[in-house]
Write a protein that binds this DNA or RNA. Structure first.
Lengths: 129, 129
DNA sequence: TCAAACCTTCACATCAATGTGAAGGCAATC
DNA sequence: GATTGCCTTCACATTGATGTGAAGGTTTGA
């Protein structure tokens, strides 16, 4: 097994304070191995996973929601964890969460557009100096 | 002047607790008139404005950022508040914020897609019961 | 005129995410 | 083998967004 890193390196690679990586673990978002001496050991995909978590947190999702949907977000659309154990309730929950996310996207898109429209209008007026 | 409402009605119309409407005012996001007796008086567009604020807060923006960009998000692309007073710094700030918003959108879109892909895969497998 | 429903300010509590520091063990290097 | 840097846990502080309640004035309608 190669490419295991400790918390410091993961922190450097992701820009996320080690303190937060421990917090995410406490929140059940990360599950690093442990070395014989108790040090946390992360595998390479953890980098991606942390970025994922950061992005979702920054986008206003709570750790609780992230914990719920994270298991279903693992890249490889191939290997799901037993899709047969997916109850109708979980499916409904995922659909609901996808909708909530969509609402956020719509809201942010509208505002991005408004900002761009404003900037364009100003520029057209040649008013920026 | 017609259609001024007090905080209770605005709260009912938006679903936002009165407590929060006062908080948004404290944060300089709302600026209601005051009646002779000190009651807050909101005009009709306040409903839209509050929804705007809620959406942005839910999407992970802070009141501080919202305060900064809100003035430039007022619907009518016509009547900007003196676009000539827009300094290059403010324009840069807006562009930056639009970019941050775009990053959030990208992140959320990816995850929405992942959820949908998962649901589709599960459904294809006929695994939901 | 009284009650109920509304409003005001002030203050303290909570919750999630994050910062920070102490006290101590482990690892590599000189 | 001592210094330096990284790691551990524990614990308390802070910040932003909220909840909640007290104490008191206002509006409305029976």
């Amino acid at each position: 097994m190669r490419s295991a890193m400790r918390i410091g390196e993961l922190s450097r690679r992701t820009g996320v304070p080690a303190r937060m990586l421990r917090y995410y673990e406490e929140q059940d978002l990360l599950h690093p191995e442990r070395a014989a001496n108790g040090y946390r050991l992360y595998d390479a995909p953890a980098v991606y996973r942390v970025q994922q978590i950061r992005g979702l947190l920054d986008s206003g999702l709570t750790t609780e929601i992230i914990r719920r949907i994270l298991p279903y977000l693992d890249q490889p659309d191939e290997i799901h964890p037993h899709p047969d154990c997916l109850t109708a309730e979980v499916a409904a929950l995922l659909r609901e969460e996808a909708e909530r996310i969509q609402r956020r996207i719509d809201c942010l898109s509208r505002n991005r557009d408004a900002i761009h429209a404003y900037l364009a209008a100003v520029q057209r007026a040649g008013a920026v100096r």
